[in-house]
Design a protein around this nucleic acid. Structure first.
Length: 192
DNA sequence: AACTGGTACAACCGCAAGTCA
DNA sequence: CTGACTTGCGGTTGTACCAGT
């Protein structure tokens, strides 16, 4: 970690928010290709990105890293997620470490949008005998998790996201979208 | 064709823990 | 030991897209 290089770095400079542009992605990829991950605030200054170090880290870990797997969560992965969640609760980063190529953010989203919904439905279907124990979405009791049948879950399109996003997620219609192949091929061209 | 509600995902925010001078 | 700073994590929000009416 680099300490106290120059006061509170993230507030004296104009900071961009919102969706990342292709140019920003490229800058980030190129910088990391040259210097490696980490020291995110230094990266921001050196690379000239108008983003916070946090934002860069998130973008890299959840999206740009070459080993990030996108799309279809397999039934095996679903099962593993449920097992690990039953064991550890909402420790998404810990769970993510056991699913290679999956990010904590992705697992968290997956849990919230699909499994949790299913658990809720199952729960209310079972007659609401648990007297609102699950009204708090954060902690699903282990028993409730075990009720969920992974094969049942596979009725949900596992990660067949509606935008047609898989490993290549460009929609084709929006000019502000680009595929990872695009970015990495550009990175290869730019690099050295 | 226009509107509305639901879904999925990317990104932001706040907090806690770790590190170093 | 303490304070300043960075990083990582979990929760939440914003928004684009799709399907149904």
């Amino acid at each position: 970690m680099e300490k106290r290089s120059s006061s509170s770095s993230e507030q004296d400079v104009e900071v961009r928010k919102g969706p990342w542009t292709m140019e920003e992605d490229l800058i980030l990829i190129n910088y990391i290709a040259d210097h490696g991950e980490g020291v995110w605030n230094t990266l921001v200054k050196s690379a000239g990105l108008k983003r916070t170090g946090k934002s860069c880290r998130l973008r890299w870990l959840n999206y740009l890293r070459p080993d990030v797997r996108r799309g279809n969560i397999t039934p095996e992965e679903q099962l593993l997620i449920m097992e690990l969640h039953a064991k550890w609760g909402n420790r998404w980063s810990k769970i993510a470490k056991h699913l290679s190529g999956r990010t904590d953010n992705e697992i968290k989203n997956y849990w919230r949008t699909r499994i949790q919904k299913h658990v809720k439905q199952t729960d209310s279907f079972n007659g609401q005998t648990s007297s609102g124990q699950n009204s708090q979405v954060n902690t699903i009791p282990v028993q409730t998790c075990n009720v969920v049948n992974p094969m049942e879950l596979s009725y949900y399109p596992p990660c067949q996201n509606t935008m047609g996003i898989s490993s290549s997620f460009s929609t084709g219609t929006n000019e502000s979208t680009w595929s990872m192949e695009d970015l990495w091929s550009l990175q290869l061209l730019n690099h050295d």
